[in-house]
Write a protein that binds this DNA or RNA. Structure first.
Lengths: 165, 165
DNA sequence: AAAGATTGAAAGATCAATCTTG
DNA sequence: CAAGATTGATCTTTCAATCTTT
């Protein structure tokens, strides 16, 4: 609020920020375009199914699924309802322990992920992975992790990665 | 489409991509949260007004404004109509030369940007600029520019920067 | 009452169709 | 008819309120 104390961006910081702002807006949009055109699903819907497909039982609790797709529970709930209507997954309210709901990928959903993944990965490679130097990609990973930590320090954002390093 | 030839991501590429995917989803969301809570506007609306505020005449043609905010003309048109309703800008159909429409920031719109900028910049610093090493920020700028070039090679994405380097 | 999740209404984005001017 | 822009319909997201189970 104290306007006079604002630390404005330097020229280099500003140019880095402008490029980053364009990146975070355009990259998801470009991936959405490919997925929508080729497979009729959104990036968000693909992420939901991709995350489920990597589980042994193709199942995840709604709140965990929300965390892994960076979405609110409400947004996820609406999206999962649509995907359930399309036959790609099923919801089940676990009766045993608690008020939890689990989403499970159906065979059709798994098949959809299998059909969709190659084109998606190709586009990710084309736009990002193969377009930048390996060292820059590594820097990007660091930046991502640091920013996520700034946004939410409590976020256990190394779930699978912790063991892998 | 040839599934067998898909070049899947390596372990390092995959971990970089996962961090990046989370980054591009969560960073704009976090900035939206700050702007919405403190000033009642979205990141997109702020960008529109900020871009206009940097012009000498606070004016830009709709299609140029769309390019500079990474948005479709349709999305921009709807958003500009709302901002016009709020008194932050005005539209004028240039009668002289062509079918162009220009958007001009009003005094109220300029004041809104002035009031909003400090908090926004503070958050950008906190989440990104001050959170990463200068070399990583520089790498991020390179990545951004390369990805934007992959998405649209014809995009003149160095408008202001060309002269500045 | 709190955690986990869903719902309906309101706001925003996308898509296709349209309008206008050159 | 093409370029620049807008519109209306539809789909998605967000926000606040609600429901259920512990």
């Amino acid at each position: 609020m104290r306007d006079s104390e604002t630390k404005w961006l330097t020229r280099d910081e500003r140019s880095a920020w402008l490029a980053t702002a364009a990146l975070v807006v355009r990259l998801p949009a470009a991936l959405d375009t490919q997925l929508q055109a080729d497979e009729g699903i959104s990036f968000f819907e693909y992420m939901i199914m991709a995350v489920l497909s990597e589980r042994d039982d193709r199942t995840l609790q709604m709140s965990d699924l929300a965390a892994q797709t960076s979405s609110s529970l409400s947004r996820l709930s609406h999206a999962v309802k649509r995907l359930e209507g399309a036959g790609y997954l099923q919801r089940e309210r676990l009766p045993g322990s608690g008020r939890r709901t689990c989403a499970t990928l159906t065979d059709a959903g798994f098949a959809k992920v299998v059909a969709t993944a190659p084109g998606h990965v190709r586009r990710v490679r084309e736009l990002l992975i193969d377009a930048v130097a390996p060292a820059d990609l590594e820097a990007l990973r660091r930046v991502g992790e640091q920013v996520l930590h700034q946004i939410d320090p409590d976020d256990p954002w190394l779930l699978d990665e912790v063991s892998g390093s």
